[in-house]
């Protein structure tokens, strides 16, 4: 069992550290800084930290103003509440193509007990649709830190970074460095490829162990870059394993599964089976119980992978 670490705490600590070396970095929040962990930055740099109150739209338009005036802006809230600023993001941030980083927390089912209202599983699709916006879903605390270094040092355009409430297993080595648009293969395999997003990568690795017992050699790939997506690796997987399963703590619409299927259908059509939320809202419960409840747990990945491998049920409902 890998040790687990909080991605949002990694964010809070890292952005504080970045703040020490980069004076242009400003951080904004909308009355959730104790949860998103931007309060860690706010405590050290109160003059460069703006708590805008429960006013997400005001936060995003002010972020645009700060960026238009030369600042490097990190704006945070829960993923679900950022979506009410969709149009402000579209017009003021993305159309102006500004240096605004949306680092959101509490995305997906793993917000747990807070329930359906908070468990956004549409955000990756919403954000991916915006021109100029790029989308990253770090798999663990190490990748979170590396993504932040990359964003500060190498980019000047809008990014959406999806973080979570729960602690997630640490899968990367400490010296791991994020490379934009590149996936990372955690386990090689020749029979089928499982592309995972976020915490589902560690579930996919567990599923791969069980699949091995069943005679299926699964490749497991971390697709932290959703936009741009690693087309090369997707086509390679299609060629080499001929079968693909995607797993995400997100709707099967417009998330990882859709991205992968777009690429395969254009470049190298193979069966792509998607494990994810089936066009439904979530519900209250413990995070890990919810994975089984909504059929995105390890057993569901194993079952879907077997089906995909044997290509039964190809035209039936998968869930």
């Amino acid at each position: 069992m890998n040790k687990t670490e909080s991605l949002r705490e990694a964010y809070g600590e890292k952005i504080r550290e970045i703040g020490q070396r980069n004076r242009d970095v400003v951080v904004m929040d909308a009355d959730l800084s104790s949860s998103t962990k931007t309060a860690i930055f706010g405590k050290e740099f109160p003059e460069r930290f703006f708590n805008m109150g429960i006013s997400e739209q005001s936060m995003i338009t002010a972020a645009a103003g700060l960026a238009l005036s030369g600042k490097k802006v990190f704006a945070s809230t829960f993923a679900v509440f950022l979506t009410r600023t969709y149009e402000q993001l579209r017009q003021s941030v993305c159309y102006n193509n500004l240096d605004v980083k949306l680092v959101v927390t509490h995305a997906g089912l793993t917000v747990g007990e807070d329930g359906a209202t908070h468990q956004i599983v549409e955000d990756v699709g919403i954000m991916s649709g915006l021109p100029n916006m790029k989308v990253i879903v770090p798999v663990d605390s190490i990748e979170t830190r590396s993504v932040l270094d990359f964003l500060v040092e190498k980019t000047k355009t809008p990014y959406y970074v999806r973080l979570t409430r729960e602690k997630f297993p640490v899968l990367n080595q400490p010296d791991y460095m994020y490379k934009p648009g590149k996936s990372v293969t955690f386990k090689d395999g020749s029979d089928i490829t499982i592309f995972g997003m976020g915490v589902m990568v560690s579930y996919a690795l567990d599923a791969a162990k069980e699949l091995k017992n069943r005679g299926i050699d699964a490749r497991v790939v971390n697709m932290s870059s959703i936009k741009p997506v690693d087309r090369y690796e997707i086509v390679k997987a299609a060629r080499e394993t001929g079968r693909i399963v995607t797993v995400e703590e997100h709707s099967i619409f417009n998330g990882l599964g859709s991205r992968v299927a777009e690429v395969t259908s254009e470049e190298y059509p193979v069966p792509v089976f998607r494990v994810g939320m089936q066009d439904t809202f979530g519900k209250s419960g413990k995070s890990w119980e919810l994975f089984d409840y909504f059929h995105i747990g390890v057993n569901d990945i194993v079952r879907t992978s077997e089906q995909c491998f044997r290509e039964e049920k190809r035209y039936e409902n998968i869930s």
Partner: peptide, 13 residues
């Protein structure tokens, strides 16, 4: 309240 087998969602439902 807030449990998986209950209707009593975490936020008003």
């Amino acid at each position: 309240f807030r449990k998986i087998n209950s209707k009593l969602e975490g936020h008003v439902h």
